[in-house]
Computed example of a mutant assay.
Amino acid sequence: MRTQEFNRQHKAPAILAATHKRMLKVLDKEIESINKLLTKTISEVTEWQRTYEILSSVPGVGDGVTFTLLRELPELGQLSPRKIAVLCGLAPFNRDSGVMKGRRRIKGGRAPIRTVLYMAMLSAIQCNPVMKKFYQILVEQGKHKKAALTACMRKMMTIFNAMVRDNCEWQAN
């Protein structure tokens, strides 16, 4: 809603500028209070607090991704890489029939995780050297940019799973 209001502000007539400013102020306060509530809730549960610290240590991952993963993926750190990819809807499924070879596509899984990871990956390929290099290699090999982004999302989810499983924070090596 905040983004929508911000975009409307730029296209609206000058007479409505004060209305848009008031609305943005209200939305900012609401977002701030929700973030405080989520942070307080996480600090009350020891397991969530450690998982929050682990996930927040990754460059390109903010509170939105961390809060979503804590809420939507309680199995994080307990499943195999393949199962976690399927659960998040990031595993490619083939569409073959007989001699016909179809395209591989992702499907199913938990949509909120996929949505939040997509936006996080756009940030991560800019500021996270590991993801940036992986993305560039895939694009240089001829993968479409969205397919490369999806592959990076899957790799990031696998890394998150391993980090939580091993109880260790991000290491660039």
Rank of each mutant, 00 (worst) to 15 (best):
V45R: 10
V45G: 04
T46G: 00
T46S: 13
T46P: 15
T46V: 12
E47Y: 02
E47Q: 13
E47K: 11
E47G: 02
E47I: 02
W48D: 14
W48N: 15
W48I: 01
R50W: 05
R50D: 13
R50Q: 15
T51P: 01
Y52W: 11
Y52L: 04
Y52D: 14
Y52N: 14
E53D: 15
E53L: 09
E53A: 13
I54A: 00
L55D: 02
L55C: 05
S56H: 12
S56D: 07
S56F: 05
S57K: 00
S57F: 04
S57I: 06
V58M: 12
V58R: 06
P59M: 07
P59H: 10
G60K: 05
V61E: 01
G62A: 10
D63S: 14
D63A: 13
D63V: 11
D63Y: 14
G64N: 13
V65T: 15
T66K: 10
T66H: 01
T66R: 11
T66E: 03
F67G: 04
T68N: 12
T68R: 07
T68I: 04
T68F: 00
L69C: 04
L69Q: 02
L69S: 04
L69P: 04
L70Q: 06
L70M: 08
L70R: 08
R71V: 10
R71Q: 13
E72P: 05
E72K: 05
P74S: 03
P74R: 09
E75H: 01
E75K: 03
L76E: 05
L76V: 06
Q78W: 05
Q78M: 11
Q78I: 06
L79C: 01
L79P: 06
L79A: 03
S80C: 05
S80Q: 04
P81N: 13
P81W: 02
R82L: 12
R82D: 12
A85T: 04
A85M: 08
V86W: 06
V86F: 10
L87C: 07
C88W: 04
C88V: 11
G89R: 02
A91R: 07
A91Q: 06
A91N: 01
P92G: 09
P92E: 08
F93C: 06
N94R: 14
N94G: 07
R95Y: 13
S97M: 10
S97D: 08
S97C: 13
S97G: 09
S97W: 11
G98R: 08
M100I: 14
M100S: 12
G102Y: 09
G102V: 10
G102C: 05
G102N: 07
R103S: 14
R103A: 14
R103C: 10
R104E: 05
R104A: 14
R104K: 14
R105Q: 12
R105M: 13
R105N: 11
I106T: 15
I106N: 07
K107T: 11
G108Q: 09
G108L: 08
